[in-house]
Simulated scan of single mutants.
Amino acid sequence: MASAAGGGAAGEGEWLKVAELRATVQAQDPHAKELDNLTLRRFLRARDHNVDKAAAMFLKFLQWRREAAPDGFVPEEQVRRELAQDKVCMGGVDRTGRPFLVGFPARHYSANRDMAEFKSFVVYFFDKICARIPRGQEKFLCVVDLKGWGYSNCDIRAYIAAIEIMQNYYPERLGKALMINVPYIFMKAWKMIYPFIDNNTRDKFVFVDNKSLQETLRREIDESQLPEFLGGKTPLIPLKDCVQQPESV
């Protein structure tokens, strides 16, 4: 079992609750012992340190994980069509050392989407970015570039599915989502998505005005790590070109 060290500030009372949570979930599912204390702490924090609620959430996660990734990861072959569209790419790290990914929703077309494959793709890229999180960090940053987004890209069901997977099975992993180049028509879709986002996650979505785009990006990401298409020096890596990493949640 991994050490809890390096996972951010926590008081003795919180670690006691983590121990209580571990005892509760291992009594019901022995596979819980395979997950470290930092993972348990994220579920605990996601449920405001209520051990019973965190236990229910964590046990549901274990069952989901066995179904969503029975081999410990989603194989590339299972999401090949999604990967070919290059709608998610890996970037560098932000100023705090968090890795970030860049999403291009304008490359997603609802008419061509298979929901089962899309959900597997969401698991695939969350696993990829979480595997890149270094020791001492627990979160990642996301840049969502909505340039060119239109009605043919609008897929409310898919967006909600992705958010629910993140909230339910990757709690406390998202540090911030910078929404950039946002067209006015997207806000109509956002009004339908918003009710499905929990209170803690809502605050992490930041809509960046075009006038302050470069200032905001450079405040979060050093120029050496900023993607080339946003005026930086680092090329993006399409998800399909990333080497398969071990399971990470």
Rank of each mutant, 00 (worst) to 15 (best):
residue 82 E to Q: 14
residue 51 V to F: 02
residue 2 A to L: 08
residue 212 S to R: 02
residue 124 Y to H: 14
residue 46 A to N: 15
residue 22 R to C: 02
residue 34 E to T: 04
residue 106 A to Q: 13
residue 120 S to V: 03
residue 20 E to F: 00
residue 33 K to F: 01
residue 140 F to M: 08
residue 220 E to N: 13
residue 212 S to P: 00
residue 110 S to E: 12
residue 9 A to E: 09
residue 210 N to F: 08
residue 113 R to P: 00
residue 60 K to S: 12
residue 38 L to V: 11
residue 42 R to V: 04
residue 17 K to G: 04
residue 156 I to K: 08
residue 240 K to Q: 07
residue 51 V to W: 06
residue 7 G to N: 07
residue 44 L to V: 02
residue 64 W to S: 09
residue 227 P to I: 01
residue 113 R to Y: 05
residue 33 K to A: 14
residue 95 R to G: 09
residue 159 Y to S: 15
residue 116 A to L: 03
residue 164 E to L: 13
residue 228 E to W: 00
residue 161 A to L: 07
residue 164 E to S: 13
residue 210 N to A: 09
residue 99 P to N: 05
residue 242 C to Y: 02
residue 147 K to I: 07
residue 49 H to F: 15
residue 74 V to W: 10
residue 1 M to T: 05
residue 139 K to G: 08
residue 114 D to T: 11
residue 226 L to W: 11
residue 239 L to G: 12
residue 63 Q to A: 15
residue 67 E to S: 13
residue 27 A to I: 01
residue 58 F to A: 07
residue 163 I to D: 03
residue 191 K to D: 04
residue 15 W to I: 05
residue 136 G to R: 13
residue 238 P to G: 04
residue 184 Y to V: 06
residue 96 T to S: 11
residue 82 E to W: 05
residue 249 V to L: 05
residue 127 D to S: 01
residue 70 P to F: 06
residue 12 E to F: 12
residue 49 H to I: 05
residue 136 G to Q: 09
residue 24 T to I: 00
residue 109 Y to A: 07
residue 158 A to Y: 07
residue 220 E to S: 11
residue 94 D to C: 05
residue 113 R to D: 10
residue 19 A to V: 07
residue 40 L to D: 01
residue 50 N to D: 15
residue 96 T to L: 15
residue 206 V to C: 12
residue 12 E to K: 08
residue 9 A to L: 03
residue 188 K to M: 05
residue 128 K to V: 06
residue 62 L to V: 04
residue 75 P to T: 09
residue 16 L to I: 07
residue 64 W to D: 06
residue 63 Q to L: 09
residue 159 Y to N: 14
residue 70 P to W: 10
residue 51 V to E: 05
residue 240 K to P: 00
residue 101 L to V: 10
residue 123 V to L: 11
residue 93 V to P: 02
residue 132 R to P: 03
residue 26 Q to R: 14
residue 31 H to L: 12
residue 77 E to S: 15
residue 201 T to G: 01
residue 234 T to Q: 15
residue 66 R to F: 04
